[in-house]
Write a protein that binds this DNA or RNA. Structure first.
Lengths: 147, 147
DNA sequence: GTACGGGTAGTGTCAGCGGGACGATGGGCG
DNA sequence: CGCCCATCGTCCCGCTGACACTACCCGTAC
């Protein structure tokens, strides 16, 4: 089974990822960071959808946003088309914070890549790219492309 | 910069990892799981070292272990050489639980691998293996092998 | 040897924050 | 009016740090 070998090796990648997170967002809980990422990926999202993405109940998401707003990390904007809804946006501060996080990750990734052989780098990029493609396609079965 | 491409692709790997965790250990907090993994990797570890690995204060680790012991996930054994220390061990239950988690991860990984080309799989294994090697070698600079 | 003191491992207690859930409430849409 | 979105009050639990405390090891002095 190739998967076992990957499982072991992937831990190194995960560790790199994690250490970047710890370094860049020391005072941000996991839930808060997830929420920020979701909002950043889908700006103007409403609370209900956010709660769904984070797999929590609506009221929990509301409280989470309370804290994020208090920390200056997101902005609640009353919806213009439907005033029942609110739209969530990143603030300049949180945008910068996410950017720093990504930069830190890239730096750590780059540091490791620098110690790899060119062939190894190429293989990693190729393999991981195809993996991402396969994973985000259809998680269920193999009905990939019948076009 | 190749790192940027990797950064994006690695997210898919992370997502796979995460979904396996959610499915297998639904009632286990992040801290508890980390503790289990640390104990599993270094059985007989004492509280102080565990606290250090988890980057928490000693008393917090003690509390955490209280809950783990109560849940039947770890065992506290009074040290025989130094009776101040205790040695922490996984229980058969937690051992099985970690095994299931790993199995679930392997299954999910395997499902994605099945949808990749043979060349892609080979590249992924090769690249990730070398990455892991480079990452766990010397995180600082490039003094790799001068032997 | 016994007694004492310093250092170390772990626990107990207290307080606080973050987070998840349920239900009730208010505001807005159709 | 009925329905939906969001908020708030309330409750409970897990995690964490700070501090005091006990139990234990060890070196030293009597």
């Amino acid at each position: 089974m190739r998967a076992a070998a990957l499982d072991d090796a992937a831990q190194a990648l995960l560790a790199t990822w994690e250490s970047a997170r710890e370094g860049s967002t020391p005072r941000l809980s996991a839930a808060q960071l997830s929420a920020l990422i979701v909002v950043g990926k889908d700006e103007g999202i409403n609370l209900r959808t956010l709660a769904g993405r984070l797999r929590m109940i609506l009221s929990s998401a509301s409280r989470l946003c309370d804290r994020l707003v208090a920390a200056g990390l997101v902005e609640r904007v009353p919806g213009r088309v439907d005033r029942r809804e609110i739209a969530l946006f990143l603030t300049p501060y949180s945008r910068q914070l996410l950017e720093e996080l990504r930069a830190s990750r890239l730096a750590m990734l780059g540091a490791v890549l620098d110690r790899m052989s060119p062939a190894g780098r190429a293989a990693l990029v190729r393999g991981l790219t195809e993996f991402a493609h396969a994973a985000t396609g259809q998680p269920a079965d193999a009905a990939v492309r019948t076009a």
